[in-house]
Structures are given as structure tokens and as C-alpha cells.
Design a protein around this nucleic acid. Structure first.
Lengths: 249, 249
DNA sequence: GAGTGGTCTAGACCACCGG
DNA sequence: CGGTGGTCTAGACCACTCA
């Protein structure tokens, strides 16, 4: 009994994910009502709602007041790993990714970083400055902060690893499951300009991202700056297949 | 009237968003406890949790069991997961959107525009240069090209319409259903600098977007340039859902 | 009108954090 | 240790959908 039994809502969510993936609820099918799920899992309606809202957030099901929930998608997206991993994205586009660590050192988390990584204030973290190249051109400067629990595995990697994501998966089985990306534009600072071979003040596309495991445990948070003209982010969305709305249906 | 009273959790969330945007809770600050918020808003803890979880989803605050919630970001974040218009997005954050048309004139579609709008080459289009403000500050310069079929409705709008999206819906029933967004960074040109009150060469976040109706009919295509620090785009993804992809410039 | 999801309440126990 | 967030329950009322 010792194994972490608790968290009924996560169990219910997993059960539903499995059922959808298995095709027991194909696209367009309706899920059982909250009341039915509550009875079947011997849980309260609140717990069932917590479970279903996770699927809602993942875009697996859609929800409308008054109507049963509908399955929107059964197949996990393949392109997530592309988004997460610079190397995999480059390879998919037929280009060659390179990378090298410029500096790597232990430090303490700043307040915002501690929040993002969900670790105590001033907890030890590993800071890595890494330059990424595409077909030999420097295009991306990454300032990544790793949580303490994963940092040793990162520190053990070769400094010129082509794909950190792949190496971490091979070495530790770590899978990046969720990501959040904040995108804006900033002017290149001195270090940015030097490493990306630009003039100071050049416009850079900045992506601040935090990646977590499937359980929601934060792994790393990073400030990535892309050389202008090297990369464009594309988003497609619609009112009908909007998988990511939260409470506001 | 349209004030849509009665969703306590949304009111509480808005109040917190406003407080964070105003700097009453700077980055790194802790939020009041759930119990305090519940008392202050005369709501139950469950309702407060629903409100706070929205901020959590938006990346404004972080959360760790046992510790108070921490403010991670004060910049308003514009989420693709909510296909909101600029004005609607501003209002949701408790801010005031303004806008005025600088120039509007008929022209013929360039080749790329014709392709995006799915109209014949050199078809007539309406070109509008529009400056958008947030709490009186100019933050966004839009260069929008409207297809001929919708252009008359656009041309008839007051030049200082707060929400073009809303007005078009009210006047014509038009609903923007799908969007495609390409995001990168560019340096401010002369016109950009003048209208956004920046120096030439300042980094701007550029979003080139094309919007279509539910039937897939293109309505407009636009080159939007955001003043630095005014807006952050946020994308959440996971192995299950991936609305964002990266592509070559 | 019955069913269903959206919202809300008022409790409760636990795991974790901090001083 | 007290405070806090994470989870859960067992009700309730409403808005909406659908047959």
C-alpha cells in the first residue's frame, strides 16, 4: 500500500486519458457525465471536475455548459518535442544544430526563478549559458536555470552536446511534458551581441520558458534570445479547436 | 448592463490581475493567503482557489504547497489560447484600450497579401494604419489589410473605435474564428518610431497575422508591431497539445 | 422538463513550509 | 509549531442543452 496512492483526481484523469488514447472514446464521442464518473470512481463531483479540467487544459476534450463533454483529440502531438528541443527542431528541418556551453556554475535562485521552479527562496540552482548554432551560424543564446534535483545530470553532460533533451532522456529517463513560453522582443545586451555576433541594441526575439515533467514538476527555466531573422514562431488557433482555455469556457 | 455580474471567481481574478499590473504586488512579492482573500471578498475558499488558479495558468503567479503564492510576472500576458481582440484583452486585464486610425486608403493587393487573403492578384483592398493605446500609452502599431468584401464595414467605423472586432461583430455579425500568427522581432523603422514614440532601431515584437471566418474565409492580414515591454505573448503547450510551432524566417 | 456542466459554500484532513 | 496550499466531500442553485 505504500506506493503513492493518493491524488484521486490524477488517477481519474489518467484513466480517462488512457481510455481516450485506447479509442474507447473516439473523436466526437461524449464522456460520461460528472455524476456517472463520480459514482464509477467513488469520488465526489468536485474531484471528478478537477480530473476532467486537466483533460480540458490539455485539449483532449471540449466542454459546453449543459452538454456532455466531447472528445476533441486522441493523438498526442508529436511536435511538442520539436518545440522543446532545438536540436530536434533543426533536424526536422534538415539543418544541423550545434551547441556549446559557455559557462556553467552553481548559484542561488532569485525570487522569480524560485517561484518558476517552485523551489525555496535562494535554493541552489545550476546556471548554464549555452550558445546554439544552426548550420554553424550562432542563432540562439540560452540562459538556463536548472532545479537542483536535475542539475547533476545536466552538469555531467558533455559541453558540446547536440541535444540536451535527448541526452537527459537517455541518461535519466526524464521526459519534458509541459512547457510555457513567454515571447517578447528585447535589445541585445553586451553579452548577447558578442556571442551572437550582432551590434548592441539589435532586436532579439526573447522566449522565456519553463518546462515541467508530466506531474507538473518544474525542471528548468530559461531565457532564450534568438538572432533576428533566424527563427519565426507560428501559432494557429481557432475558436473551435482552442485546447488551452482554462476556466473561461 | 453587459457587465456580466455574478462570476465571483472572475471578479476576484480580475482584481488580482489589476493589483499585480499596478505594482501593488511586484515580482517576488507574495499574495495574501487564500483565507485572507476569501474573507476580503466574502467568498468561500473554493471560489478564491478558482480565481487564483487562473493566474497560475497565465503564469502570473507560482504556487508551492505550504508557501504563499509568489508573483512571477507583472507584464500583462496576451495568450493565444484566448482568441481575444486587443480591446477585449485589455479590458480583461482591467486596462483601457484606445485606438485611432492614422491613415486608411484603398489600394491593390501585393502578391503576398493576395495569397494570404485569397483574392486575385492586385485586387482592391483597404489598407489601414492604426495606433493602439493601453491606458493612453501607445503600444501597438497595426498595418492591416482588409479584403474587399469586409472593407466597407471597416471604412464606416469611427476612426477612434475602441474595439474593431466588437464593432464589426455588432454591425455585420462577423466572427473571427481562426487565426494564424507569425512572431519575430524587428527594429523600429522611422514610422514605427514616430508613432510609438521610440528611437529608431528599438526592438519591436512583430506579429504578422491572418484572420479568417469560421468558414475559413480570410478577413484581414496584418503586420502588428508592439512596443517593447508592453505585451508578452504566452503559449502553453504539452505533449498532448501544441498550438505553437517554430519555423524558418 | 430532465440532464448536465458552471459556480459556490462550508466544512475537513493532509503535506509541506517557515520561523 | 502555526500557517498555507493541495485535496476532497456533500451538499446547493443556476444556465444551458437536448429530446
Amino acid at each position: 500500500m505504500s506506493a503513492r496512492q493518493g491524488r484521486r483526481h490524477e488517477q481519474i484523469a489518467d484513466e480517462l486519458r488512457r481510455a481516450i488514447a485506447d479509442g474507447r472514446y473516439p473523436i466526437g464521442a461524449t464522456l460520461p457525465s460528472e455524476a456517472e464518473l463520480a459514482t464509477a470512481h467513488d469520488a465526489s463531483r468536485g474531484t471528478v471536475r478537477q480530473a476532467v479540467s486537466a483533460l480540458l487544459a490539455e485539449g483532449l476534450v471540449g466542454s459546453r455548459q449543459g452538454a456532455r463533454r466531447v472528445v476533441l483529440s486522441t493523438t498526442p502531438s508529436q511536435s511538442f518535442t520539436e518545440l522543446r528541443s532545438f536540436a530536434q527542431w533543426a533536424r526536422a528541418g534538415g539543418r544541423t544544430a550545434g551547441g556549446r556551453v559557455i559557462t556553467a556554475n552553481w548559484d542561488t535562485a532569485r525570487a522569480d526563478e524560485a517561484g518558476l521552479l517552485q523551489v525555496p527562496h535562494a535554493a541552489p540552482v545550476l546556471r548554464v549559458l549555452r550558445l546554439r548554432t544552426l548550420d554553424e551560424d550562432p542563432v540562439l543564446l540560452e540562459r538556463t536555470v536548472y532545479a537542483e534535483w536535475i542539475a547533476p545530470a545536466v552538469a555531467a553532460l558533455p559541453h558540446d552536446s547536440e541535444s540536451v533533451t535527448q541526452r537527459l532522456y537517455d541518461d535519466t529517463g526524464l521526459v519534458f511534458a509541459h512547457g510555457e513560453h513567454h515571447i517578447d522582443a528585447v535589445a541585445a545586451g553586451t553579452a548577447d551581441a558578442e556571442h551572437l555576433r550582432l551590434r548592441r541594441g539589435s532586436p532579439l526575439l526573447r522566449v522565456r520558458r519553463t518546462t515541467t515533467t508530466a506531474e507538473g514538476r518544474p525542471v528548468e527555466t530559461s531565457d532564450d534570445r534568438y538572432s533576428p531573422g533566424s527563427v519565426v514562431f507560428t501559432v494557429r488557433n481557432s475558436t473551435q479547436t482552442n485546447p488551452l482555455t482554462r476556466s473561461r469556457a
